[in-house]
Simulated scan of single mutants.
Amino acid sequence: MKNSFSILVALLGISVQAQVQPFIQKEEIIRIETELASDKMEGRAIFSPGIDSASVFIEKEFKKINLSYFKDLKNYRQEFDVKGQKANNVIGILPGKSKSEEFVIFSAHFDHLGFAKNGGDKIYNGANDDASGTTAVIALAKYFKELNQNERTIIFVAFTGEEEGGFGSKFFSENMNPDSVVAMFNIEMIGTDSKWGKNSAYITGFEKSDFGTILKKNLKGSNFNFNPDPYPTQQLFYRSDNARLAAQGVPAHTISTSKMDNELTYHKVNDDIKSIDFDNMIEIIKSIAISSQTIIKAIDTPTRVEKLKPRK
């Protein structure tokens, strides 16, 4: 009886453990992405009612996950002025267990281009650019909250104003000590296949630190691959929200699949929910979750990049 009972307990333990392991739910990815890219968000242009609606939605998602507030904020909004107008990032954190003063950032921008001036469809929905990245940040927040294994503090941030010059990431970076930031995973346009097809993405500035090498090591044996940026002449490392912290020496890189030489929806009104490959997008989010874990658990620390001047 004792052996049988032990076997039963072991089997039940495996079953319970399997049930509590977090996973990325397709239904949730579709729900979040669809809401952020909906017409009622009016293209999420900075300073618009649409971007405020998007901010409120992201804040509600962070609250459901039960993220903590960033620094001395009283809510999830990091507010600031841009030329006399109000703007805000949305930030939530998971405090680290043993190295709470070391930060790992997961970010994306939630603004887009608003309304087109001409044509029938006048809304730049920005499903790929960058509702896809923002959806990933929310999904990863939920994943790591449930996993509950982060030794370092994780910061989840949705930036505003990327399309107008990186206002949100500029303000955020100016209020961070770069020496405390171990790594930044900036997620930009992951809703379409990369130039290599499915189960692949690229990392901007791959050669500037061993960030990408760590991620590839953690995915060894899987069918997913992170590649160096295939569009070096476009200077993508300097063109997204990672650039501000990278300029200060942080291994801050952007993960993307966008075919920048031939992305048919880039900054166009047809960048809507119909353009998103959800199955592939989910695999990318899963791969970010898995490949980042030795960094958030303080097993790996990426090398610093040479201090850079961000592109204006």
Rank of each mutant, 00 (worst) to 15 (best):
F110R: 10
E263Y: 04
V157G: 02
S292E: 08
T303W: 04
V157N: 04
G165F: 07
S38N: 09
F226W: 11
D300H: 04
E164A: 12
R244Q: 14
G249Q: 02
S107M: 03
S292L: 05
H109D: 12
F224N: 03
D277Q: 04
A131T: 13
S38Y: 06
I290F: 04
S107R: 02
E27A: 12
L140Y: 08
G119R: 09
D130C: 07
L264K: 14
P95A: 10
R304D: 12
D210S: 04
N227Y: 15
S194Y: 03
K60C: 04
T34H: 11
L67M: 06
N223K: 15
E61R: 14
W196K: 04
N66T: 13
V250S: 11
A45M: 09
D129T: 07
F80R: 11
S200T: 13
E174I: 06
E28C: 03
L147A: 13
K268E: 10
V16R: 05
M184P: 00
P228F: 05
K2T: 15
L140C: 12
V250T: 13
I138A: 06
L67C: 09
A131F: 05
Y266E: 02
E33N: 13
A183Y: 01
L215D: 05
F211C: 02
H109M: 08
K297G: 02
Q25G: 03
N225L: 08
I51C: 11
N223H: 13
K170M: 12
F206R: 01
D39E: 15
K274Q: 14
I32E: 11
P310D: 12
K198N: 15
S68M: 07
K71F: 11
S98N: 14
N175C: 07
S132C: 08
K307M: 13
I123N: 10
R152S: 07
F167G: 00
T204P: 00
G168L: 06
H112M: 07
M189V: 10
V9W: 07
D52G: 03
V90K: 01
D39F: 11
S258W: 01
K99P: 00
K195C: 03
T153C: 06
A243F: 00
A108T: 09
Q85K: 15
G205I: 01
G84T: 12
K312R: 13
K71H: 13
Q17W: 13
I14H: 08
A131V: 11
E28D: 15
E79P: 03
R304P: 13
L140A: 11
L8A: 14
T153G: 07
S53Q: 14
M176V: 13
V269R: 09
Y143W: 09
K220T: 12
E163F: 05
F106V: 00
K286V: 05
